[in-house]
């Protein structure tokens, strides 16, 4: 529309030149507006320090354990600091040192008992909850996989991007109807998303800060990760393992749709995938056996 108006004024002369410049500016403005519209859906910056917004179903477990442990260690550190402070303030050189080897049975029992008590409370809490969270959520792949609507994706990492592959309508990876994306993973909200990951070059680490998940991506080995999102939006996929010069740019976008939005995208992507399929592109045919017994 703007371009048409510009062309209408193509009559030569200074006024025409001005009109052309104006047209270019209007066109650029429209382009910027378009970018802005995309940017609105793009990952949003965080507003405050602390953990990034948690949009996962299970991530609250990690946040809770981090918070509780922060309180525990905060208390321990405070006790230590106050203890040191009192000793320095009150037991300075005006204070006669008490001759005490601290090796009376009572003192030893007290020291050992206190160490054991702190261990049982702080470390015990960490251990207990971590084991439970791993078994119930983060490392419970059986639970995720047996979900009837679980979404399976294969991620092939390389310097410095994430390729993702969806099995397509035949539910088989490595076939002509596979959907392959680049730095762009789209998933539905509310169902488990199970990933198989591999790298073709160096070790990467697939990190979803907003979903509190992470796993190394290793050449020669398949690793796994699953998550379920509770909110929609666009969030970042980050690389957490130093993987070379442009490690800092190994950034992808995870789009979380409502299930109907996801189905709509999947349908469109499926149609495009069939068109884009290139049988001669052998390197494009990656994909691995989906082994149920990996754990």
């Amino acid at each position: 529309m703007t371009r048409g108006r510009g062309l209408d004024g193509w009559t030569g002369g200074a006024s025409a030149l001005l009109r052309r410049v104006g047209a270019v500016l209007v066109g650029a403005g429209a382009l910027l507006a378009g970018v802005a519209a995309v940017a609105q859906a793009a990952p949003q910056p965080e507003s405050s320090w602390g953990y990034p917004r948690d949009v996962s179903v299970e991530g609250h477990r990690i946040d809770w354990l981090l918070n509780v442990t922060s309180v525990f260690v905060g208390i321990l550190f405070l006790i230590m600091a106050v203890w040191m402070g009192i000793a320095i303030a009150k037991h300075g050189r005006r204070h006669a040192a008490e001759h005490d080897h601290g090796n009376a049975k009572k003192q030893i029992v007290k020291a050992l008992g206190l160490s054991a008590l702190i261990f049982l409370i702080v470390d015990g809490n960490l251990f207990f909850h971590s084991i439970r969270d791993l078994d119930e959520a983060f490392w419970n792949f059986a639970k995720a996989e047996t979900h009837p609507e679980a979404v399976r994706i294969e991620v092939n990492a390389h310097q410095w991007a994430w390729d993702a592959r969806y099995a397509g309508s035949d539910a088989e990876f490595g076939t002509a109807d596979d959907i392959v994306t680049f730095n762009d993973i789209r998933v539905p909200r509310g169902v488990p998303v199970v990933l198989q990951l591999r790298s073709v070059d160096v070790i990467h680490s697939f990190y979803l800060p907003n979903l509190r998940q992470k796993v190394d991506v290793v050449p020669g080995t398949t690793t796994h990760l699953w998550f379920a999102a509770k909110e929609t939006g666009e969030f970042e996929i980050a690389c957490a393992q130093h993987c070379g010069v442009h490690h800092y740019k190994m950034r992808g976008v995870l789009t979380i749709y409502e299930p109907e939005g996801y189905r709509a995208w999947l349908g469109e992507a499926q149609a495009n995938a069939r068109v884009a399929y290139d049988a001669a592109d052998l390197l494009g045919h990656w994909g691995w056996r989906w082994d149920k017994e990996y754990y």
Binding site: H91, R94, H95, E98, G102, S115
Partner: peptide, 12 residues
């Protein structure tokens, strides 16, 4: 604990 007990009641 041992370090803190060592300085506590000392003559620092």
């Amino acid at each position: 604990l041992n370090w803190l007990h060592t300085i506590y009641r000392g003559s620092i």
